[in-house]
Amino acid sequence: MNIFRLAGDMTHLASVLVLLLKIHTIKSCAGVSLKTQELYAIVFATRYLDILTSFVSIYNTLMKLIFLGSSFSIVWYMKYHKTVRRTYDRDQDTFRHWFLMLPCLLLALLIHEKFTFFEVLWTFSLYLEAVAILPQLVLLQRTRNIDNLTGQYIFLLGGYRGFYILNWIYRYFTEPHYVHWITWIAGLVQTLLYADFFYYYFLSWKNNKKLQLPA
């Protein structure tokens, strides 16, 4: 565990907590894409299938449980909670997430490190995570009206990706045989998707103004 990996995990954890705080305390999920949240639930479910069979550390297992639990509870809140679900921007959140899942599954079947059930699903989760933010970014673009918590949520998620890239660079130079092209390319693609959002986030921060995306 290096400082970049820890910082990445902590920003990831913070992003989830910010979103749960918004949903649980304010009882609102306005501006949050259910499509993206469903994709994350699928990402964690397929990636952490090994939770019972492979043990790395208590830290890893605990974090896996937190990410699984939080992603499914966010989906549950948005779909079934009687107050929260009424604040969901159903009509704007129309991204077809099947269009993301199918190509990711095909790609995982074609490009993977090992052709086993767990490994292909694990690779699928990497590809899907890379693009899972797209429905959220489209929803932001459409509603344009972004409250602080939603902005912070996406900012923290992007931060998590950035720290993971630093972690990979660090591990590449400090650990022999640490080469994972699939993870790196998927992670890089994912981080690049945030670039545009980050640009406008920093502009609004610099000018001390509310975050607004151009039409």
Binding site: S54, V56, H177, T183
Partner: peptide, 10 residues
């Protein structure tokens, strides 16, 4: 060891 390495991240 390689397999473990690739799955020790979250």
């Amino acid at each position: 060891a390689k397999e473990e390495e690739s799955h020790d991240e979250l």
